[in-house]
Amino acid sequence: MRIEHHPILTFSKKEPITFLYEGKPVQGFEGDTIASALHAAGVKALSQSIHLKRPRGFYCAIGNCASCNMVVNGIPNTRTCITPLKEGMVITHQTNLGVLYDPR
């Protein structure tokens, strides 16, 4: 799902980044957001609707709509469309509203 040839842009090979998605290792690249890496890996459903648990993908990709919220390194409601991917990130689906926690 990566663009290989483009008349205007060049997408040079970037450093691979490995992260855990639902417990399985997945590869993305330097410069990816979590959502772009997941989409490239074929994962379209990122969140769930709160009541009917319908699958939701990203919608705005600018951090405005919450349609891409996932649990990242234990932190719920992370907007994966604007969060840069980092090596070793642990990413899981969020099944509830997310619980407030104390980072200290």
Partner: peptide, 12 residues
């Protein structure tokens, strides 16, 4: 515009 971001910014 989100699709534009995915393609042009992230190459996906």
């Amino acid at each position: 515009g989100a699709v534009q971001t995915l393609m042009n910014q992230y190459g996906v």
